[in-house]
Amino acid sequence: MTQLALVIDLNVCVGCQACVTSCKEWNTSGIAGYLSDDRPYDADPTGTFFNRVQTFEVGEYPNTQTVHFPKSCLHCEDPPCVPVCPTGASYKRAEDGIVLVDYDKCIGCKYCSWACPYGVREIDEHQKVMKKCTLCVDRIYDQKLPREERRPACVMACPTNARLFGDIHDPDSAVAVAIRERGGYQLMPEWGTHPANHYLPRRRTEIVIQPDELVRADNPLKVDGKLPKPSLKEPALDDVTSW
């Protein structure tokens, strides 16, 4: 069974927010749209976005890590938001595991958002229906798009390619390999939601220097006669042993 998902590589995400506005832009103009904005030019502007990039600080100065953390609907394999929906507007597609909302059925009761531990659903304050990431279902199957563009808008946009997209159930897919080999993990595993989206952790590259690498025959100081030599007058073993 197919389960499409995003795998987000925190090792390279620089928090640029490209995925945020490219998502907004695609979806506001597409079938999921529009995504309304309120008070766009006034105090406290607010609006519907499917994807947000947050910032966390881990540790204490000077050993601080800054973690940029993009988050959209995780398309849970066992999505708690779906069974609670009284209308069936929220549903998980059997064919590809995408969790969607049917806007024509949604009554805007918000119950599904209460049942999502991840805070990724947003009611559209104008259309009064629940919205969330569609995994760009209107791009990824669009036969009019060239094959390499049948990917979510945020994935296309992401300058660091931190957003991988694919079928996590296909063991040969890039996403499955990444999860397997680079420690992909799920958010809040304690609730058994089995998010399809995974995150790849930071990895640290270090250089180990062996002391002998600093003392080498090809030291250029030698050419200029600059490699320090001890003075001839300094004591040596030579002077005191006689056997």
Binding site: C16, Q17, A18, V20, T21, S22, K24, E25, M156, A157, C158, P159, N161
Partner: peptide, 8 residues
């Protein structure tokens, strides 16, 4: 690719 500004 495109950035946050470009998309806006």
């Amino acid at each position: 690719v495109i950035c946050a500004k470009g998309s806006s």
